[in-house]
Amino acid sequence: MTKTSSGLTAPFALARVDEGGRAWPALVAGDRIRPLTPAELGADDLNAFFADPDWGRLGALAEEGGEGWRPLEQVTLTAPVEPRQVLQAGANYRTHVVQLIVAGLTKGDAARDPEEARAHAERIMDARAASGRPFVFIGLPQCVVGDEVPLELPAYSQTHDWELELAVVIGRPGFRVDREQAMEHVAGYTIVNDITTRDLLFPADVGDIGADWYRAKNAPGFLPTGPFLVPAPFVDPSDLRVRLELNGEVMQDATTAELIFDVPSLVAGASQTAPLNPGDLLLTGSPAGNGQHWKRFLRDGDVMTGSIEGLGTQVVRCVAEGGAR
């Protein structure tokens, strides 16, 4: 999808431009963009660059004028990353999880009193925070797309939901890193909308087996990402406003200050099980205001506009399965 304005506050950012199905790395400065050759990048590709980023080199290029620069509105951007792993933090915004639990407990034949349901949900979140251990699950890298790709809503459900999230892009590889060193492994940040099919997340036919994260979250295109990657030196992830509008109406509006586990804790926690690779995505969780809460899910023709302070804006258009693109 072409961008008329970057909406960035950083001196520069990275992106990937889609030309005829091929993507090439690019440097964004203001409302200008220019391709990056391997020589200019100092690496064969973006993941190799993230392993040992030279932001000074790119900063100098961003200040240059001359040939190579194009208006941002003349190009089509795709997802700014190609992760080998997608790690996703769950239950990381207290209000969001309380809303989901209350919504589930106050419907059906066995519905609880709303106040009782809320008290139960609050106890769950108190225990979650006291555990000291973030809850992380995995997603499929093939679901990562740019917002130029329409979000096709599978016909097998009518409960496809939005979850706008701050996403960490891993830089230097890390395995079993301490919280104190965790930020040394962060290359930058981007925006991800973690689309979720609610009625598949806790299907009735599996009883107490648990959540079905695979079916609920991994349909094609269910991780719209970008459009930009903002370098870590330009971002303080501790208090960024996260905002999602559906057809112009605000649905999510919160800040990352509400995270139960902050970015260093998530990076350290995720690295305890498996090594983190350059370019991997680590989603930090979704704030309150999802469709489950509003009792309104995604429909054909919906437009989601998601923004995170300093990281730009993504616009995702929804189409019914098999519908016109």
Rank of each mutant, 00 (worst) to 15 (best):
T4P: 01
A13K: 11
L14Y: 03
D18K: 12
G21N: 07
A26M: 07
V28T: 08
D31S: 11
R32E: 07
I33N: 07
L36W: 04
D44L: 14
L46C: 07
L46H: 06
A51K: 10
P53C: 08
P53W: 05
W55R: 13
W55E: 05
L58P: 01
G59P: 01
G59V: 08
L61Q: 13
E64R: 15
G65V: 03
E67Y: 13
G68I: 11
G68M: 08
G68L: 09
V75E: 04
T76D: 11
L77I: 10
L77N: 01
T78E: 06
A79M: 09
P80H: 03
V81L: 11
P83R: 15
V86M: 06
N92S: 07
T95C: 00
H96R: 08
H96M: 01
V97S: 12
V98M: 11
Q99H: 15
L100D: 09
L100R: 10
A103M: 00
T106V: 11
K107C: 00
A110L: 15
A110G: 12
R112W: 03
D126G: 11
R133V: 00
P134G: 06
L140F: 14
G146W: 01
E148K: 10
L151I: 13
Y156K: 08
S157N: 07
H160C: 07
L164G: 01
L164Q: 01
I170P: 02
G171L: 14
V177F: 01
R179M: 14
E184C: 04
G188Y: 01
G188E: 02
N193Y: 00
N193D: 10
T196N: 13
T196I: 12
R198C: 00
L201T: 00
W213E: 04
P224H: 02
P227I: 08
F228A: 06
A232K: 12
V235S: 01
D236R: 13
D239T: 00
R241W: 05
R241M: 04
E245C: 14
L246P: 00
E249Q: 15
E249A: 15
V250Y: 08
T255H: 12
A268S: 13
A270G: 02
S271E: 03
Q272I: 07
P275S: 04
D280W: 02
L283H: 05
P287R: 11
P287F: 04
A288I: 07
N290T: 14
N290I: 12
N290R: 08
G291F: 04
Q292L: 14
L298T: 11
D302C: 12
E309M: 07
E309Q: 15
L311N: 05
G322E: 04
G323S: 12
